[in-house]
Design a protein around this nucleic acid. Structure first.
Lengths: 241, 241
DNA sequence: TTACCCCCATAAACGCCGTTCACTATCGCA
DNA sequence: TGCGATAGTGAACGGCGTTTATGGGGGTAA
């Protein structure tokens, strides 16, 4: 019931917190995750390292909050692309995949923090704080717009899928966590499956490219990506681009 | 032109090298990549840290050699599964994908080292030593059996693909690195494309599962994986399992 | 057998790192 | 005006990778 005014102290505090994360991010982009250090952040801000403990209980906590911010930033970028793509769900999906790849290539270190090797400390903290890793909110929140768009497409013109009886047997029983977040299945199991399959396919392409695991085969991944996206879209009954 | 006998000194040296890597790996499996430290290895071996510099120029170099060993170990596991699967290329491919997933789930830390976030130091060294990352031998060597099996399948009964003229335009010109390693294209471009597409799809599934990026949606990834493998195989004209 | 040299290993030190603790100054509020 | 919460400091601990100088020990050649 306190007033809405953030009481100066809190404003300063919030400003320091964002400045801390900004400097951490600069270190992240230049030197990768292991380059983020409390002492370096403090140096860059003209502080001493222990002072940061007034704002975060540990370096891992700071990195975790940074990761959440980045997750959200990527989500917004994808949603923006979606809304700029018109009303057709197919066009929206194509725009979103392109936005996802573009952002990831432009921010490889951030991508690595969010989608790569789980950082040991992060997961421990995340488990307690219900944050961005294993049981995390962020992953589900990020997947939501993709899922939503696919659901629209499905409602508009159902695409052919693997027959449900086949899926219902083995796949549906594993959907507990999914149902926990998105409510009881308004969506048929086939659509959920199609969503997860497409999402892992997109992730595989982008992760491989960002991590450099395709350098040995291909000089430019763009054509591979474009053709693959077109394929997925076509399998969803979409029109050619 | 020296004798084949490894001259005692060299035998002891080689033994120490493998012991170093063994201890490094133990640290890797228990605490992830950042748990590998020279001092910890030295402690576990009853040595002092600087002694390790007689065998590796830096910690990064040790980790790199370890990564190469692990890459090779995974390759052997996949090849074993292939040879145990009979003569049918389709059965071989299915066995190989299962072996890949099983190994990765059983060795998450190793998987992270090889297929996850590139470790900063590794890449720098690898660029100079033509090792396992970006331009690396290991990635190509690992992909080879998959490619070979797919080529056999293709030779035996060609599967339908995206029409070559479409691919030749955009995709073929990017295949420089691939040709550099596998010679001039005895294989049609469509097959190479199909191989890379299937490989990224497999990678996406396994990486997502190992990194825990599917916990929010699914309690057990197995059905998702099984159905997806069946799909890929079917798209390759394979028989149902 | 003796002398030499190379190889292995060590101890000490440097400069990083995260984190803790005792302490101080300052700012906001009553 | 004074009090208390709050931000910040400096010193310290233990751990890290790495360098340097220094000591032993075994293989090889004289």
């Amino acid at each position: 019931m306190t007033m809405a005014s953030p009481s100066r102290r809190e404003r300063l505090r919030a400003a320091t917190v964002t400045e801390l994360k900004d400097h951490a991010r600069r270190l992240l982009t230049t030197g990768g995750v292991p380059a983020i250090s409390l002492r370096a952040i403090a140096r860059d801000m003209g502080m001493t390292a222990p002072a940061i403990y007034r704002y975060f209980p540990s370096l891992d906590a700071l990195v975790l909050h940074l990761a959440e911010d980045i997750y959200e930033e990527l989500r917004v970028a994808v949603e923006d692309a979606r809304h700029a793509a018109g009303a057709d769900p197919v066009e929206q999906l194509i725009a979103m995949t392109h936005a996802f790849r573009a952002w990831s290539l432009a921010h490889p270190a951030e991508f690595g923090l969010i989608f790569g090797n789980p950082v040991p400390g992060i997961d421990a903290y995340a488990a307690a704080a219900s944050a961005c890793r294993p049981g995390g909110e962020a992953a589900a929140r990020f997947g939501a717009p993709f899922l939503e768009t696919l659901a629209h497409l499905w409602a508009q013109r159902p695409f052919p899928t693997t027959p449900p009886p086949h899926l219902a047997e083995a796949f549906a029983p594993t959907l507990g966590p999914f149902r926990l977040r998105h409510g009881e299945p308004e969506l048929p199991v086939e659509v959920i499956y199609e969503f997860l399959a497409a999402w892992t396919r997109l992730y595989g392409m982008v992760a491989m490219e960002v991590f450099g695991h395709l350098h040995w085969a291909v000089s430019d991944v763009t054509p591979l990506f474009e053709i693959e996206v077109r394929r997925v879209v076509k399998s969803l009954g979409g029109a050619p681009a």
